[in-house]
Write a protein that binds this DNA or RNA. Structure first.
Length: 680
DNA sequence: TAGCCTCGAGTTCA
DNA sequence: CTCGAGGCTA
């Protein structure tokens, strides 16, 4: 830049120019080093530039900006992570575990699109990194928020930690930077980095990480970013989230665009035509697996075109346009030392194999569920058998098969018990059901589990009332039904081991607090057979109060969506039991007020039952159902005496006829909308 | 009546 | 995560 003599250069302006230049240089060399793996300057030269920038920023704090490379490591530790809601949910992928299932995915895609079987769909194949999914938000080209996947809807804000990843640009480079760009990626640790961290840990006498995935997860969840900065994490980006100011026609072009902006993309991604080439990629990666510098647990196949992706859409939890192809899980061989019988909340007795401890991909496994006795018989698992064990989905241990050639003849088959191992009651196997049940009404483990269920997070959410306390409540005989929880005194609690004033107050407060839970949670907490979280919620919605539910007839119950004869009968049986009614009464007397969810109050359709039939033009069937449910009614599939309204579209057939026959009010779509919006 | 899809229930280890 | 079972739909 040429300065005229008339310009009196203000030193801060000069510094600003140099600072901008230094930042650009540092980012550029970072990228050459970490992403392209072809450094153009020495480490010493890089350090010199870095220190010069630091010096200038110290001198002129006004020049410090969000994207400065000297601030990759934020100042101080956090107390906890705040949560971030993803603009678009981060879905998980459906799994295929072999080439047959991969081909089935391809057939499903073509069937859904109405394409002939021989069509070659353009796919994009990627290695599936074994790490953690994150979402990065770039606002006007600046990395503003980074969050973990969490439950797919809401994750944790790990921005400070993500900023320490050197291969990730804090500011996008190149042209046509969108106003908003969300990219999803996988954060991982290279095998090199993993080994280095573990040898350091061992030198310090700390326990090493089990595998690179755990090490990456542990590093990313550090509250102090200075610790994360010492763990050389990496990231590969693979999918778009929301975007404003950018539109990508295909996955392939998305990769090209983000790579152009400096975001790291796995160089092994490959566009292919047709499923056979995708299967070949999967097999190739399996071969290469051991020689890659990082862990992968499979490959991902995506329909390349975003237009076709949108056409295929999503099922509830996963898109139809992608599949995760998992490599066969790593297995181990061990001995079945014993088979135990465990009793669950509903009385179902489950056989559990006690295994000689064995390590599978870094984790020591010592138990595995055998599900039921059909499964045992099918695989012919006996006590003393040598078996192959794997971790299903790399988490839950499962016995795959018996090595019969290792049998000595002394192995003992395991039979379902005739009496409950815990309470001695008779054990029943209901016809056509696989499960074996203890029918004991006062079976201790069943009772213990039902209290655990009652207090659990998704039910009454009584914080602090865990396994240990419940054990003590029971052994001290303080509780003989869940209602007794609401009559506990401070003195009662003080009888517990390791219970101080503070803990007792907290627990009492938590119990008191739980009296306000909404009706759905309360119904769920009761533990009625076949009534889980979801069903409990729709019951609360449909009946609006405990009294209404208690009085509901089988017919009324069956008219609710997703409730059939079995579930209805189970609910009726529960409320016909005088013991159950007495327990509920006692809870209500204690001040438990299962409130109806806010939006249901004053719902116009409370307790009303709708049937939609014919071709609807103003809304889809699903939208209509939501409209009705938001007003406290339900929408069902078939017309019965319980139906209050039938909403008929074009060409309504037998349901309309039946409605007329039963004298049910028939509405047009317009009538329905009017009814919906009328009173107010 | 078969073949989805969704829900419920049980479960592992650190 | 996985299995079984219940409910709905073609």
């Amino acid at each position: 830049m040429q300065l005229s003599l008339l310009d009196v250069p203000n030193p801060e302006d000069a510094a600003r120019i140099r600072v901008d230049e230094l930042r650009r240089l540092l980012e550029q060399h970072n990228r050459l080093y970490y992403v392209l793996d072809s450094p153009e300057i020495s480490d010493a030269e890089y350090d010199a530039l870095f220190r010069e920038l630091q010096r200038l920023e110290d001198q002129y704090p006004g020049l410090i900006s969000l994207d400065t490379p000297t601030h990759r490591v934020g100042g101080s530790a956090l107390d906890k992570f705040s949560s971030v809601t993803h603009r678009l949910p981060m879905l998980s992928l459906e799994n295929a575990t072999n080439d047959v299932e991969i081909r089935e995915f391809d057939l499903r895609v073509k069937k859904y699109l109405g394409l002939p079987q021989e069509e070659l769909i353009p796919y994009l194949c990627e290695p599936k990194m074994d790490g953690l999914a994150v979402e990065l938000v770039y606002t006007d080209g600046l990395l503003s928020v980074a969050s973990t996947r969490g439950d797919g809807i809401t994750g944790e804000d790990v921005t400070e930690n993500i900023r320490t990843i050197r291969s990730l640009p804090l500011r996008l480079s190149g042209g046509r930077i969108p106003r908003l760009l969300e990219v999803r990626g996988e954060v991982f640790l290279s095998l090199d980095a993993f080994r280095r961290i573990n040898s350091e840990k061992e030198e310090n006498g700390e326990a090493p990480f089990v595998n690179p995935r755990n090490a990456a997860a542990g590093s990313l969840r550090q509250l102090d970013p200075r610790i994360t900065a010492r763990r050389p994490l990496s990231v590969y980006c693979y999918a778009p989230g929301a975007a404003d100011g950018a539109d990508f026609p295909s996955q392939q072009e998305f990769f090209a665009a983000i790579a152009g902006w400096g975001l790291p993309v796995n160089p092994l991604v490959r566009p292919v035509a047709g499923i056979e080439a995708a299967v070949a990629f999967y097999e190739e990666m399996q071969q290469q697996r051991e020689s890659l510098p990082y862990e992968i647990d499979g490959t991902v196949i995506k329909v390349d075109s975003f237009v076709i992706q949108r056409e295929l859409g999503e099922k509830s939890r996963s898109p139809r346009w992608a599949v995760a192809c998992k490599f066969p899980p790593r297995q181990a061989v061990t001995l079945v030392e014993d088979i135990l019988h465990s009793v669950g909340r509903t009385g179902v007795i489950t056989p559990v194999a006690l295994l000689r401890p064995v390590e599978i991909s870094g984790v020591t496994v010592s138990r595995a569920t055998l599900h039921n006795w059909d499964e045992i018989a099918l695989k012919d698992i006996r006590i003393g058998d040598t078996v192959v064990v794997e971790r299903a989905g790399d988490v839950i241990p499962a016995v795959v098969r018996v090595l019969t050639e290792k049998r000595s003849g002394t192995e003992q088959p395991s039979l379902p018990p005739e009496h409950c191992p815990q309470c001695g009651s008779e054990v029943v196997r209901i016809a056509d059901e696989v499960a074996v049940r203890c029918m004991g009404l006062a079976c201790p483990p069943q009772f213990r589990e039902s209290i655990m269920h009652f207090a659990s997070r998704n039910a009454m959410d009584i914080e602090g009332l865990g396994e240990k306390f419940i054990e003590q409540l029971l052994s001290l005989g303080l509780v003989s039904s869940v209602a007794d929880l609401y009559f506990l005194s401070r003195d009662d609690l003080m009888k517990f081991e390791r219970m101080g004033e503070k803990l007792a107050s907290n627990l009492l407060a938590a119990i008191e607090n739980s009296k306000q839970r909404d009706l759905g949670r309360f119904i769920f907490a009761l533990g009625i057979r076949h009534v889980g979280e979801r069903t409990a919620k729709s019951l609360a919605l449909a009946f609006g109060s405990l009294e209404n539910l208690e009085r509901a007839t089988l017919e009324e119950l069956v008219s609710i969506r997703d409730i059939g004869a079995t579930v209805a009968q189970s609910i009726r049986t529960f409320f016909d039991n005088q013991g159950n009614i007495a327990v509920i009464r006692r809870m209500l007397e204690a001040g438990v007020t299962p409130a109806v969810e806010q939006k249901k109050i004053g719902g116009r359709f409370t307790g009303k039952c709708f049937v939609f039939t014919g071709a609807l033009s103003r809304f889809t069937r699903d939208e209509a159902r939501i409209l009705v449910e938001n007003e406290g009614g339900n929408a069902v599939g078939s017309v019965s005496k319980k139906t209050d309204y039938v909403v008929a579209g074009e060409d309504a057939g037998s349901k309309l006829a039946k409605a007329r026959e039963l004298g049910v009010t028939v509405l047009s779509e317009e009538d329905f909308l009017e009814l919906l919006g009328r009173e107010e």
